[in-house]
Simulated assay, not measured.
Amino acid sequence: MSSGLTTHVLDTGREGPATGVDVELQRLDSTGESETIARGTTNDDGRLDEPLLTPDQMESGTYQLVFDVESYYRKGPSESTFLEIVPVRFVIDDPEEHYHVPLLLSPGGYTTYRGS
């Protein structure tokens, strides 16, 4: 059973959660145009308080998470100016499954994967 779409941001440079990262979820149509359908800010655990999509809202399609890491770095752990936003584009092909898209963040780079 799906528990929707969730994300988690970890700051590998600080070896812990990234608190206060603004996250935007966009749905892309067949032409590549995007529409923002959800927003949130990571909590003290680096997670959003609510799923970006609940199980009832899950639909097949192409989505993009946009992480505002520039604001995170300006307010907090370093003064890195390398990254501004981190876009992660992915496909939901089975809305019955849970999709978890973590972001491992550092001042000079990032990694993402499909989590569980």
Rank of each mutant, 00 (worst) to 15 (best):
D45K: 14
V91T: 13
D44H: 11
E33M: 06
P102C: 15
S106M: 13
K75G: 06
D44F: 09
L53D: 03
L25K: 03
L10M: 12
G13S: 15
T6P: 08
T12P: 01
P55N: 07
E33N: 14
D93H: 10
Y72I: 06
S116L: 12
M1L: 10
T41Q: 12
V66R: 07
L103K: 03
V69G: 06
G20F: 11
L28E: 11
P95K: 05
P102F: 14
L65F: 00
R89T: 15
L5W: 08
I92E: 00
S71D: 13
D49H: 06
G32Y: 04
L103P: 04
L104M: 10
A38G: 05
Y99L: 08
R27S: 09
G76W: 13
L25S: 06
Y73D: 07
L53A: 05
G32E: 08
G108R: 13
F67L: 07
D45L: 14
V21D: 02
D22K: 14
E79G: 12
L48Y: 05
V21K: 02
S116T: 14
D22P: 00
G115P: 02
S78D: 12
D45C: 07
Q26S: 04
I85A: 00
M58I: 01
V88C: 05
P102H: 14
S30L: 07
T111K: 15
L53T: 06
S2C: 07
E15K: 14
R114V: 12
I85L: 06
P55Q: 08
H100S: 10
D45I: 01
I85F: 03
E24V: 04
E35W: 07
T42A: 00
T7G: 05
G46N: 07
T31G: 14
Y113R: 13
Y73Q: 02
P77E: 13
Y110R: 03
V91H: 03
P95A: 03
I92G: 02
V9H: 03
Y63H: 03
T19P: 06
D93K: 05
V23A: 01
E33Q: 12
D94H: 04
P107C: 14
G76M: 11
T12A: 12
T19F: 09
R47V: 10
L25T: 04
N43Q: 10
S78V: 07
L25G: 11
L28I: 03
H98S: 15
V86R: 00
D44W: 09
V86P: 12
L48C: 06
D45T: 13
S106P: 04
A18E: 15
S60I: 06
M1C: 01
E15P: 09
F82W: 15
P107W: 15
D49R: 13
V91A: 08
I85H: 05
E35C: 09
